[in-house]
């Protein structure tokens, strides 16, 4: 039986209590994406700027539970300064970790497209692995990532 310590790891609580990259960038020029979890009313606002290849700045606003807030904070730290290609790899790997089903799908596509990198290290994000044991909370953890992904899609269009 998974216990609370599987979910609320210290590093998660740290990001929740001291969120990184808080706030909103002025949009435009920044890109602004809102994400909602209709189940619980959680809301995340991701704003970021790019120089064409990399994310040069990113800020997180909104309100939500410890898991969605910590995930957003960790995400902002993980993607800042990275190229959009790298960010997509991280996102895919993270989302694969968040879902057994998606994980299998990713492994299948991995053989064909060599994405995502199975050995890609997620660093601090690994702390969120325990969320999978609490299925109802998976959407909390993926909320900011889905917002960022749709933002990247907008940019590439």
């Amino acid at each position: 039986m998974p216990g609370l310590e599987d979910l609320y790891r210290e590093i998660i609580l740290d990001h929740y209590r001291n969120p990184r990259n808080q706030g909103e960038l002025e949009a435009p020029p920044a890109h602004r994406i809102e994400g909602f979890n209709p189940l619980c009313g959680d809301e995340v606002v991701v704003t970021f700027t790019t120089d064409g290849t990399s994310i040069t700045d990113v800020k997180i606003a909104g309100h939500g539970c410890s898991i969605s807030q910590a995930s957003a904070s960790m995400m902002s730290a993980a993607v800042l300064g990275k190229s959009t290609t790298e960010i997509r790899k991280i996102t895919q790997t993270f989302k694969a970790m968040m879902s057994i089903h998606e994980g299998e799908m990713a492994e299948e596509s991995n053989e064909k497209t060599s994405l995502p990198q199975p050995d890609l290290s997620l660093g601090d994000l690994e702390a969120l692995r325990g969320v999978v044991k609490f299925p109802v909370r998976i959407k909390c953890a993926t909320l900011p990532w889905n917002a960022l992904l749709s933002g990247l899609d907008e940019v590439s269009q």
């Binding site: 216990g3 609370l4 979910l7 619980c40 959680d42 939500g64 539970c65 410890s66 898991i67 807030q69 609490f134 909370r137 909390c140």
Partner: peptide, 12 residues
């Protein structure tokens, strides 16, 4: 404390 987190702790 966010309601989700409250209910998670209470569930235990």
């Amino acid at each position: 404390v966010h309601p989700h987190d409250i209910s998670q702790v209470l569930d235990q």
